Simulated scan of single mutants.
Amino acid sequence: MTIKVAGQSIRYDIRKGDGRSTPLLMLCGIGAAFEVLQPAVDALDPDREVIRFDVPGVGGSPVGPLPYSFPALAWLTRRLLNHLGYQEVDVLGFSWGGGLAQQLAVQHPNTVRRLVLISTATGMLMVPGSPRTLLKMVTPRRFTDPEYAAGLAAYLYGGSARRHSAEIRRVFRAQVQAGSRRGYLFQLVAGAGWTSLPFLGLIKQPTLILSGDDDPIIPLANAHLMARLIRHSELHVYPGGHVELVTEAPTLTPVITEFLSRDLRL
Protein backbone atom coordinates (compact mmCIF):
# COMPACT_ATOMS: atom_id res chain seq x y z
CA MET A 1 0.00 0.00 0.00
CA THR A 2 1.11 3.57 -0.67
CA ILE A 3 0.21 6.83 1.05
CA LYS A 4 1.20 10.46 0.46
CA VAL A 5 2.85 12.13 3.44
CA ALA A 6 3.93 15.76 3.14
CA GLY A 7 4.12 15.33 -0.64
CA GLN A 8 6.23 12.15 -0.41
CA SER A 9 4.87 8.77 -1.51
CA ILE A 10 5.54 6.13 1.15
CA ARG A 11 5.01 2.40 0.69
CA TYR A 12 3.91 0.74 3.91
CA ASP A 13 2.56 -2.49 5.34
CA ILE A 14 0.47 -3.22 8.42
CA ARG A 15 0.03 -6.67 9.90
CA LYS A 16 -3.10 -6.32 11.97
CA GLY A 17 -3.10 -7.56 15.56
CA ASP A 18 -5.73 -8.15 18.20
CA GLY A 19 -5.50 -4.60 19.56
CA ARG A 20 -4.48 -5.65 23.06
CA SER A 21 -0.79 -4.68 22.82
CA THR A 22 1.00 -1.55 21.65
CA PRO A 23 1.67 -1.69 17.88
CA LEU A 24 5.29 -2.25 16.87
CA LEU A 25 6.93 -0.01 14.26
CA MET A 26 9.91 -1.73 12.62
CA LEU A 27 12.63 0.36 10.93
CA CYS A 28 14.95 -1.38 8.43
CA GLY A 29 18.65 -1.17 7.75
CA ILE A 30 20.22 0.90 4.99
CA GLY A 31 19.10 0.10 1.45
CA ALA A 32 16.64 -2.56 2.63
CA ALA A 33 12.93 -2.67 1.76
CA PHE A 34 10.64 -3.73 4.57
CA GLU A 35 10.36 -7.32 3.25
CA VAL A 36 13.88 -7.94 4.59
CA LEU A 37 12.44 -8.01 8.12
CA GLN A 38 9.72 -10.54 7.22
CA PRO A 39 11.43 -13.41 9.10
CA ALA A 40 11.23 -11.35 12.30
CA VAL A 41 7.59 -10.44 11.66
CA ASP A 42 6.75 -14.11 11.09
CA ALA A 43 8.46 -15.08 14.36
CA LEU A 44 6.62 -12.47 16.45
CA ASP A 45 3.32 -13.22 18.17
CA PRO A 46 0.67 -13.01 15.40
CA ASP A 47 -1.56 -11.02 17.77
CA ARG A 48 0.95 -8.11 17.84
CA GLU A 49 0.26 -5.41 15.26
CA VAL A 50 3.33 -4.57 13.15
CA ILE A 51 3.91 -1.47 11.00
CA ARG A 52 6.67 -1.25 8.39
CA PHE A 53 7.47 1.24 5.65
CA ASP A 54 10.11 2.04 3.05
CA VAL A 55 11.98 5.29 3.63
CA PRO A 56 12.28 7.57 0.55
CA GLY A 57 14.52 6.05 -2.10
CA VAL A 58 14.18 2.49 -0.79
CA GLY A 59 11.91 -0.31 -2.00
CA GLY A 60 8.63 1.10 -3.27
CA SER A 61 9.06 4.64 -1.89
CA PRO A 62 10.43 6.96 -4.61
CA VAL A 63 13.52 9.00 -3.86
CA GLY A 64 13.02 12.68 -3.09
CA PRO A 65 14.81 15.59 -4.76
CA LEU A 66 17.08 16.11 -1.74
CA PRO A 67 18.37 13.91 1.09
CA TYR A 68 16.30 13.67 4.27
CA SER A 69 18.26 14.18 7.49
CA PHE A 70 17.47 11.94 10.45
CA PRO A 71 15.43 14.72 12.14
CA ALA A 72 13.46 15.16 8.89
CA LEU A 73 12.91 11.40 8.61
CA ALA A 74 11.72 11.28 12.24
CA TRP A 75 9.25 14.08 11.46
CA LEU A 76 8.11 12.22 8.32
CA THR A 77 7.66 9.03 10.35
CA ARG A 78 5.52 10.85 12.91
CA ARG A 79 3.39 12.30 10.09
CA LEU A 80 3.01 8.83 8.57
CA LEU A 81 1.83 7.42 11.90
CA ASN A 82 -0.66 10.30 12.21
CA HIS A 83 -2.05 9.50 8.76
CA LEU A 84 -2.38 5.83 9.69
CA GLY A 85 -4.11 6.63 12.98
CA TYR A 86 -1.38 5.69 15.50
CA GLN A 87 -0.67 7.92 18.48
CA GLU A 88 1.75 5.66 20.36
CA VAL A 89 3.93 2.77 19.18
CA ASP A 90 6.83 0.64 20.30
CA VAL A 91 9.77 1.10 17.92
CA LEU A 92 12.31 -1.47 16.76
CA GLY A 93 15.27 -0.06 14.85
CA PHE A 94 17.63 -2.41 13.05
CA SER A 95 21.12 -1.23 11.98
CA TRP A 96 20.65 2.11 10.10
CA GLY A 97 17.04 2.04 11.26
CA GLY A 98 18.33 2.08 14.83
CA GLY A 99 19.65 5.58 14.23
CA LEU A 100 16.23 6.71 13.04
CA ALA A 101 14.65 4.97 16.05
CA GLN A 102 16.91 6.89 18.47
CA GLN A 103 16.08 10.18 16.73
CA LEU A 104 12.35 9.43 16.80
CA ALA A 105 12.44 8.55 20.51
CA VAL A 106 14.04 11.84 21.55
CA GLN A 107 12.34 14.08 18.96
CA HIS A 108 8.83 12.70 19.46
CA PRO A 109 8.93 11.19 22.97
CA ASN A 110 5.15 10.92 23.31
CA THR A 111 5.03 8.73 20.20
CA VAL A 112 7.48 6.06 21.40
CA ARG A 113 6.50 3.90 24.39
CA ARG A 114 9.47 1.49 24.32
CA LEU A 115 12.56 1.26 22.16
CA VAL A 116 14.40 -1.78 20.79
CA LEU A 117 17.80 -1.16 19.16
CA ILE A 118 19.40 -4.04 17.26
CA SER A 119 22.85 -4.15 15.60
CA THR A 120 23.10 -0.37 15.70
CA ALA A 121 25.27 2.44 17.03
CA THR A 122 25.51 6.19 17.59
CA GLY A 123 26.18 7.38 14.04
CA MET A 124 29.40 8.94 12.87
CA LEU A 125 30.83 9.05 16.42
CA MET A 126 31.04 5.33 17.08
CA VAL A 127 33.52 2.50 17.42
CA PRO A 128 33.90 1.58 13.73
CA GLY A 129 34.05 -1.80 12.10
CA SER A 130 37.04 -2.80 10.03
CA PRO A 131 37.80 -0.40 7.13
CA ARG A 132 37.55 -3.21 4.55
CA THR A 133 34.09 -4.15 5.81
CA LEU A 134 32.90 -0.54 5.79
CA LEU A 135 34.12 -0.09 2.20
CA LYS A 136 31.77 -2.89 1.16
CA MET A 137 28.92 -0.91 2.76
CA VAL A 138 29.37 2.01 0.37
CA THR A 139 27.79 0.13 -2.54
CA PRO A 140 24.10 -0.93 -2.59
CA ARG A 141 24.95 -3.96 -4.75
CA ARG A 142 24.30 -6.44 -1.93
CA PHE A 143 20.62 -5.39 -1.93
CA THR A 144 20.17 -5.40 -5.71
CA ASP A 145 22.15 -8.59 -6.45
CA PRO A 146 21.09 -11.52 -4.21
CA GLU A 147 23.92 -13.74 -5.46
CA TYR A 148 26.50 -11.11 -4.57
CA ALA A 149 24.84 -10.66 -1.16
CA ALA A 150 24.97 -14.39 -0.46
CA GLY A 151 28.65 -14.60 -1.43
CA LEU A 152 29.52 -11.62 0.75
CA ALA A 153 27.35 -12.58 3.74
CA ALA A 154 29.93 -14.39 5.86
CA TYR A 155 32.54 -11.66 5.40
CA LEU A 156 30.20 -8.69 5.88
CA TYR A 157 27.66 -9.85 8.47
CA GLY A 158 29.47 -12.48 10.54
CA GLY A 159 27.67 -14.81 12.93
CA SER A 160 25.04 -17.15 11.49
CA ALA A 161 25.37 -15.49 8.06
CA ARG A 162 28.48 -17.66 7.66
CA ARG A 163 26.22 -20.71 7.32
CA HIS A 164 22.98 -19.13 6.07
CA SER A 165 23.96 -17.62 2.72
CA ALA A 166 20.90 -19.22 1.11
CA GLU A 167 18.63 -17.44 3.61
CA ILE A 168 20.35 -14.11 2.87
CA ARG A 169 19.78 -14.71 -0.85
CA ARG A 170 16.09 -15.58 -0.28
CA VAL A 171 15.40 -12.52 1.90
CA PHE A 172 16.91 -10.06 -0.58
CA ARG A 173 15.04 -11.72 -3.46
CA ALA A 174 11.80 -11.22 -1.51
CA GLN A 175 12.05 -7.44 -1.83
CA VAL A 176 9.36 -6.13 -4.14
CA GLN A 177 11.78 -3.56 -5.50
CA ALA A 178 15.39 -2.69 -4.75
CA GLY A 179 16.18 0.87 -3.74
CA SER A 180 17.76 3.33 -6.13
CA ARG A 181 21.47 4.16 -6.03
CA ARG A 182 20.52 7.78 -5.38
CA GLY A 183 18.27 6.72 -2.50
CA TYR A 184 21.08 4.64 -1.00
CA LEU A 185 23.46 7.59 -1.29
CA PHE A 186 20.89 9.83 0.42
CA GLN A 187 20.70 7.35 3.32
CA LEU A 188 24.49 7.42 3.61
CA VAL A 189 24.36 11.22 3.68
CA ALA A 190 21.75 11.17 6.46
CA GLY A 191 24.02 9.02 8.62
CA ALA A 192 27.29 10.73 7.69
CA GLY A 193 26.57 13.97 9.55
CA TRP A 194 24.55 12.54 12.44
CA THR A 195 25.33 11.23 15.89
CA SER A 196 23.12 10.41 18.86
CA LEU A 197 25.88 10.74 21.47
CA PRO A 198 24.85 14.23 22.66
CA PHE A 199 21.25 13.20 23.32
CA LEU A 200 21.35 9.56 24.44
CA GLY A 201 20.91 10.73 28.03
CA LEU A 202 17.64 12.39 27.00
CA ILE A 203 16.03 9.15 25.84
CA LYS A 204 13.49 8.46 28.56
CA GLN A 205 11.84 5.34 27.15
CA PRO A 206 12.70 1.87 28.45
CA THR A 207 15.21 0.58 25.91
CA LEU A 208 16.39 -2.89 24.96
CA ILE A 209 19.75 -3.03 23.16
CA LEU A 210 20.64 -6.23 21.32
CA SER A 211 24.06 -6.81 19.81
CA GLY A 212 26.02 -9.78 18.52
CA ASP A 213 29.51 -10.70 19.67
CA ASP A 214 30.61 -11.33 16.05
CA ASP A 215 29.38 -8.25 14.16
CA PRO A 216 31.98 -6.94 11.66
CA ILE A 217 29.89 -3.83 10.88
CA ILE A 218 28.89 -2.66 14.38
CA PRO A 219 31.37 -3.89 17.02
CA LEU A 220 29.92 -4.87 20.39
CA ALA A 221 31.63 -1.93 22.13
CA ASN A 222 28.97 0.36 20.64
CA ALA A 223 26.16 -1.48 22.41
CA HIS A 224 27.99 -1.21 25.73
CA LEU A 225 28.43 2.54 25.16
CA MET A 226 24.72 3.06 24.41
CA ALA A 227 23.71 0.96 27.42
CA ARG A 228 25.79 3.19 29.68
CA LEU A 229 24.36 6.44 28.29
CA ILE A 230 20.66 5.55 27.93
CA ARG A 231 19.28 5.71 31.45
CA HIS A 232 16.54 3.08 31.33
CA SER A 233 18.27 0.55 29.15
CA GLU A 234 19.27 -3.09 29.28
CA LEU A 235 21.76 -4.91 27.08
CA HIS A 236 21.30 -8.37 25.62
CA VAL A 237 24.40 -9.81 23.94
CA TYR A 238 23.78 -12.81 21.72
CA PRO A 239 26.25 -15.14 20.01
CA GLY A 240 26.17 -14.05 16.39
CA GLY A 241 26.59 -11.25 13.90
CA HIS A 242 24.84 -8.33 12.27
CA VAL A 243 21.76 -9.96 10.75
CA GLU A 244 20.63 -12.48 13.39
CA LEU A 245 17.25 -10.70 13.47
CA VAL A 246 16.80 -12.09 9.95
CA THR A 247 18.69 -15.38 10.01
CA GLU A 248 17.90 -16.40 13.61
CA ALA A 249 14.60 -14.59 14.20
CA PRO A 250 13.01 -17.35 16.34
CA THR A 251 15.93 -17.01 18.77
CA LEU A 252 15.81 -13.21 19.17
CA THR A 253 12.09 -12.44 18.96
CA PRO A 254 11.24 -14.05 22.34
CA VAL A 255 13.71 -11.66 23.98
CA ILE A 256 12.02 -8.73 22.24
CA THR A 257 8.51 -9.95 23.07
CA GLU A 258 9.36 -10.43 26.75
CA PHE A 259 10.73 -6.88 26.96
CA LEU A 260 7.75 -5.31 25.20
CA SER A 261 5.27 -7.25 27.31
CA ARG A 262 6.97 -6.77 30.66
CA ASP A 263 5.49 -4.49 33.33
CA LEU A 264 8.20 -1.84 33.63
CA ARG A 265 7.73 0.83 36.28
CA LEU A 266 10.24 3.67 35.96
Rank of each mutant, 00 (worst) to 15 (best):
L37V: 15
L37P: 09
Q38I: 14
P39S: 15
A40F: 08
D42W: 14
D42A: 14
D42H: 15
P46L: 13
D47S: 13
R48Y: 00
V50K: 12
R52K: 09
G57F: 11
G57D: 13
V58P: 07
V58K: 01
V58R: 04
S61W: 02
S61H: 02
P62T: 09
G64N: 08
P65S: 14
P67A: 06
F70A: 00
A72G: 12
W75H: 05
L76H: 04
T77W: 01
T77Q: 00
R78G: 05
R79W: 11
R79P: 07
L80P: 05
L80S: 07
L81D: 02
N82T: 00
H83G: 04
L84P: 10
L84M: 02
Y86M: 03
Y86N: 03
Q87I: 01
D90L: 01
D90F: 09
V91E: 06
F94I: 15
S95H: 04
W96L: 14
G97W: 00
G98D: 03
G98H: 04
L100K: 09
L100C: 14
Q102T: 06
V106Y: 14
V106E: 03
V106D: 01
Q107N: 08
H108T: 13
R113K: 07
R113T: 07
R114Y: 14
R114C: 14
V116Q: 06
V116S: 08
T120L: 09
T120V: 10
T122Q: 12
M124C: 08
M124V: 11
M124S: 10
L125R: 07
M126W: 00
V127E: 11
V127N: 12
S130K: 13
S130F: 09
P131F: 08
P131N: 05
L134G: 11
L134T: 04
K136C: 09
M137F: 00
M137C: 04
V138Y: 11
P140V: 05
P140N: 01
R141Q: 00
R142E: 01
F143R: 08
T144G: 06
D145Q: 03
D145R: 04
P146Q: 02
A149G: 13
G151A: 04
L152W: 06
A153I: 07
A154P: 05
A154F: 01
Y155P: 09
Y155T: 15
G158P: 13
G158W: 14
G159L: 00
S160P: 06
S160G: 10
S160C: 09
S160T: 11
